[in-house]
Nucleic acid binder design. Structure first.
Lengths: 217, 217
DNA sequence: GTCTATACGTCGATAGAC
DNA sequence: GTCTATCGACGTATAGAC
């Protein structure tokens, strides 16, 4: 008779895995990947260090899972923002995406820096490339629609989209790297970090898109 | 009498170190960091694998040295381009930098991808951040001058500069990742990869800067 | 699940400089 | 004779194939 995992045991294992991920997410938000040592994650999850390897074969895989989880939330938030602005112009939908992305990043600076630029592991780097392509495609379809309708001047939608993704990410890294004051309460005060960053980025975006009246400074 | 390294021996050691770096640069340009295994570098340099560790304590340190060497060349090329355009408008100087950077990247796609985006090692990632800040500062001073003189509309020069750095890098990653055809001869044919990429990027840049007449498409 | 291949980093041995 | 630079094979870890 082979060993069979009972539902109760399986549930406990699943709960433990969830606890590991939750612990990792918490540490990631507070101290970035630098704080996500296997020992720290295990301690916060209330298990032994070695037990983490029951769920993830390596630190790199855990890092990737945390990355995908958090960035998945951001994709959802951004998609929702684009959806809510569906009745507006293409440029305004792009702006809605940028504003949502940037303001959320600035509210969680340490987390945003970890996702955008913190040197971590080649596996996470590879995942960054994947998600950047995804964001690019979102922008590209919006821009292509704008060009199609004549709202935006003719342009290579993919290239503009790529450039906007890179611009948004890089523009945020600056304000994010300066104040790595983790307990500054910026997460709850809203917009305490880099005042004026979002409007400036919006202006940049509108101009780059070639919107005729870019008077949003 | 303690052992003293004679000049002849020292010269031989220095030459060997140079050979290692040269071998690494060649492999980097042909196959990216993926081709820069310690064994391959040693073989091309004509020494034993273990001897590489006489000059570099780890692969990461060698990777960083290669990165700094190549990017240093790019910084020099870009600086020269900015200098040659010193008599022109600020926007044109920014464009000169972008054009130089982008066209050089497109002529050596594999190398450019390795420097810009290839997942490698956290140490190289950290170096990327350093050099991006350097490029940002170059743009920032040009833009600040343009705003000062009234050539460009009022804006946060640092933020625009960061955004342009990110935009340029990200816009190139796309065209670079597709054709990783290394022996395609694109290095000598000039501009065989991503036709139209540079003009499109220039248009994007001019619009983003807020140049009044951005009719350069 | 096993087995092979690849690659980093180390080590004892050797040849040669001092 | 002593110390050192170099070699190349080995240990270990990991990823992929079968």
């Amino acid at each position: 008779m082979p060993y069979r995992r009972t539902p109760a045991v399986q549930a406990r294992i699943d709960a433990q895995r969830t606890a590991v991920v939750e612990a990792g997410l918490g540490l990631l938000a507070e101290h970035g990947y630098a704080g996500c040592t296997m020992a720290a994650v295990a301690a916060r999850a209330g298990i032994a260090t070695g037990s983490v390897y029951r769920h993830f074969p390596s630190k790199a895989e855990l890092s990737v899972e945390l990355f995908r989880t958090v960035v998945g939330r951001e994709v959802a938030a951004v998609s929702e923002a684009a959806g809510l602005a569906a009745h507006r112009t293409c440029a305004e939908r792009v702006v809605a995406v940028i504003e949502t992305f940037a303001s959320r990043a600035l509210k969680s600076p340490r987390l945003a820096y970890a996702l955008l630029a913190e040197p971590v592991d080649p596996a996470v780097d590879a995942e960054r490339l994947v998600f950047r392509r995804a964001f690019r495609d979102v922008f590209a379809s919006l821009i292509a629609a704008g060009v199609e309708s004549g709202e935006l001047p003719p342009q290579d939608a993919r290239l503009t989209a790529s450039a906007l993704v890179g611009a948004g990410a890089e523009a945020l890294v600056g304000p994010l790297t300066g104040p790595l004051t983790e307990g500054s309460g910026a997460e709850t005060a809203g917009e305490a970090v880099g005042p004026g960053t979002v409007p400036a980025l919006v202006t940049f975006t509108l101009r780059a898109l070639g919107v005729p009246d870019a008077h949003h400074a």
